[in-house]
Each structure stands twice: as C-alpha cells, then as structure tokens.
Nucleic acid binder design. Sequence first.
DNA 1: CAGTGGTCTAGACCACCGA
DNA 2: CGGTGGTCTAGACCACTGC
Lengths: 269, 269
Amino acid sequence: MERTSGSATLDRDSALPLWAQLHADLTRRLDAGEFEGAFPGELQLAKEYEVSRNTVREAMRRLRGDGVIVAERGRRPRLAAAHEIEQPLGAVYSLFASVEAAGMQQRSVVRSQEMRTNSKVASQLGLDPGEKLFFLERVRLADEEPLAVDRVWMPGTFGAEFLTVDFTHTALYGQLLECFSLRIDDSRERIRAIVPTKQDRRLLDLGPDQAALAIERLASAREEPVEWRRTIIRGDRFSLIADFPPKSGYQFDLAKVAGASHESDVKSS
Amino acid sequence: MERTSGSATLDRDSALPLWAQLHADLTRRLDAGEFEGAFPGELQLAKEYEVSRNTVREAMRRLRGDGVIVAERGRRPRLAAAHEIEQPLGAVYSLFASVEAAGMQQRSVVRSQEMRTNSKVASQLGLDPGEKLFFLERVRLADEEPLAVDRVWMPGTFGAEFLTVDFTHTALYGQLLECFSLRIDDSRERIRAIVPTKQDRRLLDLGPDQAALAIERLASAREEPVEWRRTIIRGDRFSLIADFPPKSGYQFDLAKVAGASHESDVKSS
DNA sequence: CAGTGGTCTAGACCACCGA
DNA sequence: CGGTGGTCTAGACCACTGC
C-alpha cells in the first residue's frame, strides 16, 4: 500500500541533500491535497522532520521560488492562490486578463464548437493525423468590440465534456482544471506579425491596411500536449510589453493609440 | 576625500541588514574595479568583514542572482564574463544574436549618424524637448538581405564619442561599455504589429501586403535612460518565441516560413 | 499576546576542483 | 594537497502579523 500523506522520514545517508528530500516530500504532500489553506511554519517543520531550521528554509526557498507557497513574516504561511501561480500562462492569457484589469466587459462569440480532424494540428499535439480533435473557435469581444479571433484544438478525449459547455463567458483553462484537474504547466508560443485574411479582417472589423499579431501556442500539462491554439489579435489597439530584467515575464497591454499613425509621433526627418 | 576602494566596516546598528550592507559594499568595490578577475571566497569575506559565513552567503546569493559573479564549488570565484550577464537584453538584441547563432553574416548599412532634436524622444529620455540627441539609423542585413530598420536616439552627451564610430559592424552596447563603462541593466519594450510605411517597405524590400513587428525600447543603465530605440522587423521571416515557464525569457528566432501564406498550414474548415 | 519569517552567529563535515 | 562552496546544526534576537 502506498503512503499518500503524512510526513515521511528523511534518509540521512542518501546522496540527495536533506533539503531536497524535504522539498520533494512537501511537494508530494501538497499534491496529495494536505495543507488545504494552511501550511506549517518553519519551526514546526524543523521539529516534525527533525532537521535544523536552515534546512527547512532551504527547502522552502525553492517552494516559494516555484510560486507554490507564500510565506511572509508574521502571517501564517499559505498555499499560493490560483491567480498567484498563473503568471506564466503566456501572452494570450495575459491579454484577456489585462482586458478585465482595465475594467472592460469581456465576452466571446462562439462560432464553432465541434469535433474535427486536422492532420497538421494533430501532429503538433503528438496524435495520429486522422484523429478526431475538439475544435473551438471564438471571437473575443471587449466592451462589445472585437479584439481577437481564437481557434483552439485539443485532443478528442476532452471533447465529450467540452462539447456541451457554454464558452461565452467560461475560461477554457478553468474548465480544464474543473473537469480534468489539469493545470497548464508548460507552453511555447510563437508570435508573428501578419496581415489578416479577409475573413479574419471581417471578424475583427479591421481595415485592409491594418496588421495583426498572430500567436500560435502549444500548451502542455504533466508533459502531455493539451492544446494547440492560434489567436489573431487586432494590431491597432494591442501591444506586447516586456521588461528586462523581467518582473513578470512579458504581458499584453491595451495600447493607448489615439487613432494616429504609428509613425506620427516619431518622425525620423 | 572619498573612499573608492578597500573594504568598509559595517554598521551593526543600521536598519539595513548586514548582508544588504555587505552586498552594497561589494557592489561598490566591483564598480571601482577591484577584484579584476579574482573575487574573494566566502570564508575570506567572513573574516574580512567580521560577519558569519551565512551572512556572506546571503549577500553573495544576491550577487550571483544578479549575474555579477560566478562561484562554483571547488573553483576560485570569479567575476562573470560579459557574455554571462547579457541574457536580459531584450528581443532586439536576441534577434541579432540569433542571426549570428544561425551562422549568417551580419552587417549594417548606416543611413544616418548625427545630432538631432526630437521633442517626443527627448521627453522619453527625460531630457528637455529641444536638447540635442545622438541619432543613428541603420538597416540591418543578414547575409546581405534586409532584416530590420533600427533607429536609435541617445542623450547628446554620447554624441561626441559616437559620431565618429563606424557602426557597420560595431555593436552599440559594446561601445557603450567600452567608452563609458555603461552596461544596460534595465529596459522596457513594446512590441506591436504594423504595416510598415512606404519608406520602410522600400528599405526592407517588403511587398505592400506584408506586416512587420515594431519594437520600441527604452533602455537604462544605473537608473538613467540611455537609449530610445525603434526597430522595424520584417514580419515574413521572423517571429518571437516565448516559453512558459521561461527558461530564458523569450527570444527571437528565424522562422522557417517557406513562402507559404500563414494560413495555409491550418485551414479552419 | 503567541507565532511567523528575517537575520545572525559559530561552529562542523563533506565533495569537488585546481595545482 | 589546500581552498572552494554545499550542506547541516543548534542556538539566538528581532520586527511584524493577527488575535
């Protein structure tokens, strides 16, 4: 029978440092669902595992670096809230978050929500070319104004649950967490400048002389590809902001472009 | 008379933690040019400043995190080589680095290198609107093919040195380090999709239906704005790649676009 | 007030590296 | 081999938080 909770004893003869074993055991207990809301303090862990406080601090330094727990002086240590971990979800997520942060109303028009095959996408997801995929196409609106076209492909296994969800207001990653207990923990994005197709121009209410950002995204959870996404974002109102050294990676922001041409503010002659 | 080198004593009554004072003093000595090549070890510093080794470790943890020094078990600690610090320089730098990494020949055509005024840019740099600025306009070529148009404005104080430098092959940040001992340590970038102006299309050999990425960048060294830059990058061959969680932030990559339309690989019907 | 993490000390043993 | 950083211990005092 497997031990699934409770504290394990540490092996002092192991090649692994004590703090690493402690870090691993705490991670296991966190995954097992212990510490719901409450997390033990440094002194308590030192007593529990019979190690010095410095050893505990070294293990917790990692846990904090991973964004898993939050410990501040004086306060009771706590598990990091979901939104405190979600930082590294990427530019697309950041965009939609920043829209809400700007106090704008957000809504999607679902244009397609069905099972499809697509050999190119299937191979990106590591599946057979003919395999059925769940496909979701949405136009994202901010205050009823089109922002982006979002096309998502996922392995067909998600389809049964997702075909009947109303994605007008529902976050896909929230559903993923709720229905399958999956959290995106790794992704790779490719961001390009494009001139949108006529169809996308129509969906986005864009003129023929406007550029757009295209973001292609492959997201994984537990080392398994979960989603391939292609998002076309209006280029006239949105931009990507990056800080170096990055405080929180990069983020999308509403650009304060006042109708003027992009070249007008910095003439080069 | 100012003390410019040698170790200072630490104030144990200060509100600043000992490790922070130590970190500050070591940073000062590093800037003063001590430790050329050799950096003292933990035990030596503990004896020198009369603090415990843990305090030294806390200070050095920061220095290592800043990428200023490199300390590995067994080896003598050393100052980080220039290339070991340069990671967080941003998308533009990353682009030009990736071109060289791909084994391509890199060259610039200097189209302008002079003193200019520009009120908008001056205010971005925190200067008076009428102040003279050093201006450098280059077309970046990779294997003799145009990649990007790069326009740089810097405070006029740099002009005297920079007006006579040949920037055909010379890196601006290298000159900044060499002539003024300044290293960019902070920057903010804004990345947008645009349709280039007719002039930029001509410079980049782009057709009228091509989009481009525009990167605006404000870079600082020692808390002082040093550069405002606007770079227009061909949208048909280059894209921004981002990993989450970011191993090295994001980076520009040569895209393997084989002439095909961007939509051709993923039809949505 | 009790409990938290932040800071600090003064020791210790070890694995690893370069000479 | 001597010196390095990695790890670990067993104490200590303090500022801050929440009750």
